[in-house]
Amino acid sequence: MSEKEHTGSCHCGEIQFKIITDFAEITTCDCSICRRKNALMVKVHESKFTLIQGKNFFSEYQFHTHTAHHYFCSKCGIYPFHRKRVTPDYYGINVFCLAEFDPEGIPIRATIGAGMK
């Protein structure tokens, strides 16, 4: 798949963003927060992520090493993306927040976050 621009948002639309990606793969994670939010994520470099609006609606959550930054909408509660722990210059984007996106046919890789120290 070639790189394309995709737009996304939280449920209420207060947070809106766009990304550019080729969807080489999407990932799951078994860490304590990812298990609970059950998102499928695509990894996008910060240079291919643009926040269109909504920074004032960010609610941020950090845990364990306080390296990753998990963002939620303070109005609707949806998790649209996070700054990654191991690669902080990348975002993990919740693909279910992308407009008109179907993950069918894209390889899914399970990452092991529960054992990270």
Rank of each mutant, 00 (worst) to 15 (best):
M1N: 12
K4H: 15
K4T: 11
E5Q: 08
H6V: 02
T7M: 04
G8P: 02
S9D: 00
C10F: 03
Q16G: 09
Q16N: 09
F17R: 02
K18E: 02
I20N: 11
F23C: 05
A24F: 15
E25W: 05
T27D: 10
T27G: 04
C29G: 07
S32E: 11
I33N: 07
C34I: 05
R35C: 13
R35D: 13
R36G: 07
K37S: 09
K37P: 06
N38G: 13
L40Y: 10
M41K: 11
V42S: 07
V42T: 13
K43Q: 12
H45M: 08
S47G: 09
S47F: 07
I52S: 02
K55M: 07
N56C: 05
N56M: 09
F57Q: 08
S59Y: 13
E60Y: 09
Y61E: 07
Q62D: 04
F63R: 10
H64F: 13
T65P: 08
T67C: 11
A68F: 04
A68T: 03
F72P: 06
F72Q: 04
C73K: 01
S74W: 02
S74R: 13
S74D: 09
K75M: 05
Y79Q: 12
Y79V: 01
P80C: 05
P80T: 04
H82S: 15
K84Q: 14
R85E: 15
R85H: 13
T87K: 14
Y91P: 00
Y91N: 00
Y91A: 03
G92T: 00
I93P: 00
N94Q: 06
L98P: 01
F101T: 02
F101S: 00
E104Q: 14
E104L: 13
G105V: 10
I106W: 06
P107F: 07
P107M: 04
P107A: 13
P107W: 02
I108W: 00
I108P: 05
R109N: 10
A110L: 03
A110T: 05
T111K: 12
G113L: 10
A114L: 13
G115L: 14
M116K: 12
M116R: 14
K117Y: 12
